[in-house]
């Protein structure tokens, strides 16, 4: 069978961005896939439109790595759904990612500022 086609996001996500966003979302507690995609879309003001074709493989990839774990629970609407939770390893990973991202953001910000001054 064909390998999964690449889904185009609104903004081409940098490698690892999606993983980071998922971990970030799960910081506040267990959440199911539908909830995670909602949260990402809402919190990024729809700047990132995360497709299911990227998100589900990403969730499972993180689970396989041991950064999150999954369990079946009953949702607030009495539906069975699979909830994802951060593991200890996941929290450590999130901390690393956060510091990496803030460095990147700082770097980008100073780059933009300089360009603005020059322009």
């Amino acid at each position: 069978m064909a390998r999964a086609p690449r889904y185009q996001n609104r903004i081409d996500l940098l490698q690892g961005t999606l993983d980071f966003m998922i971990l970030q979302t799960l910081r506040w507690g267990a959440q199911h896939g539908y909830g995670i995609s909602h949260a990402i879309n809402a919190n990024s003001f729809d700047a990132f439109k995360v497709g299911t074709g990227s998100m589900y493989p990403a969730l499972h990839r993180l689970e396989k790595r041991g950064w999150i774990r999954a369990e079946w629970r009953t949702s607030e609407h009495n539906q069975r759904a699979k909830y994802y939770l951060l593991t200890a390893a996941g929290r450590r990973q999130l901390a690393t990612e956060q510091s990496r991202w803030s460095q990147l953001v700082d770097a980008m910000a100073s780059l933009m500022k300089r360009q603005k001054h020059e322009g």
């Binding site: 497709g51 299911t52 074709g53 589900y56 493989p57 969730l59 499972h60 990839r61």
Partner: peptide
Amino acid sequence: EFGNVLLVRQATREVW
């Protein structure tokens, strides 16, 4: 909105 269910399923499965 979900998109191609089969493809997502396949892609997710491949992770494992």
